[in-house]
Write a protein that binds this DNA or RNA. Sequence first.
RNA 1: GGAGGGAUGGGUGAGCGGCCGAAACCGCCGGUCUUGAAAACCGGUAAGCCGAAAGGCUUCGGGGGUUCGAAUCCCCCUCCCUCCGCCA
Length: 423
Amino acid sequence: MLDLRRIRQDPEGILARLRRRNPHLDLSRVLALDEERRELQKQVDEVRRRQNEGSERVAALSKAGDLPERERLLAELKVLAETRKRLEDRLSQVEAELAAELLSLPNVPHDSVPSGTKEEKVVLRVWGEPPRFDFPPQHHLALAQKLRLLDMERAAKLAQSRFPMYVGEGARLEFALLHWMLELHVREHGYIPILPPILANRRSFLVSGQLPKFAEELYHCPADDLFLNPTAESLLANLHNDEILEEERLPLKYVAYTPCFRREAGSYGEEQRGLIRVHQFNKIELFWYITPDRSYQALEELVGHAERVLQLLGLHYRVTLLPASDLAFQSAKTIDIEVWLPGQGAYYEVSSCSNCEDFQARRGNVRYRPKEGGRPQYVHTLNGSGLATSRLFAAILEQNQRRDGTVVLPRVLAELLDRETLG
RNA sequence: GGAGGGAUGGGUGAGCGGCCGAAACCGCCGGUCUUGAAAACCGGUAAGCCGAAAGGCUUCGGGGGUUCGAAUCCCCCUCCCUCCGCCA
């Protein structure tokens, strides 16, 4: 949700910045509705003021015993009440339209975000080097099937295609990864661990930004009007709805584990084979609530926490800055971490770290009381994967594979699983 | 699924047609006292909208209704709690 006052004060400026994201965006309707709303509000306020004055006089006249004057006044007030009703009906209609309009507007890109298309993302840095093989590296799906780590065929019996099922050492590896990442963020990076509900209500997704525009991406349970979470961001963004936090408590840093569910309507292709794009995957999510002055510094820190996972696993990756046109709806700035998958000869996103500034905080009405006093301010929220496995799982197999199709486990995982290799 | 109880400011919680934007307590801020702090005492302290300001208006879970006037009465909904049923 954008700040209406900001739009009103600088409509051209905001529009220009929004159009870096999408040249078709338009503010004229918002501005027109806002003006009508304020005019109606003014009229309603005036009628109410006269009603309030009148009501006080009714009480006074009753006490004084001036009944004829009292009757005359009551008749007058009755007319005012009807007038007000008419104005209020129109006002609430305009308010609803304005709210809908505002909910459909994405966040304004930060000035440090480059313009340009998806392909023009900026590579900020590269860590490590791609492993070299003296044989053609295999796809993780081939490796996983040979090593009996995944059973996609049986998973399809239970659910549908593109729902993965981890079996045997694969299941152990996935569990170990998730637990290890959670502990890393709790013990070394100071996050508060959360194991949230996986289904959440409509408001939660309105706050996070998934709704109203991206409903087709969500699995929906109509009987209860609940949605399966596509990322724990949607859940963690709602932890403090309608609260005023004390500044001393900030930043609040949460780490959650959830499975994530995405309908992936319309996506297809050979590159989506295996664990690259699935309907259900596991993710450790990092989420910050922080004061506005520190949020961009926090974004760098957050990215660092996610990178740490890959560094400890010894996986080659790169960090990219997304251009404005590729930003998620709610994000003002996003930095992606992409891990190298030699089986496909490409980098794939395993973490997307965003500063949503006050976009989600406005929708969730999450504020803080400044230390130095004054009125409550909206917090800034940040989210980032720390990390998404499934893809991480694929990277571990592909980057550490040997000619015979076995996989050498990274040190940390070898200790957790009590074995040096898979296969 | 059935029965009952509840939702009020940063927190606890009173109010049950006009004197209520709302007692009291806690917290927080300022002051007195003190070498300093604590304690004690005194004062202040909700949020939102419009407005340059003065000020006006709104808000006691949400929506609708009764009334000149609703935190307070009526109806609907949501959520929370307790008990019963079912169940990992």
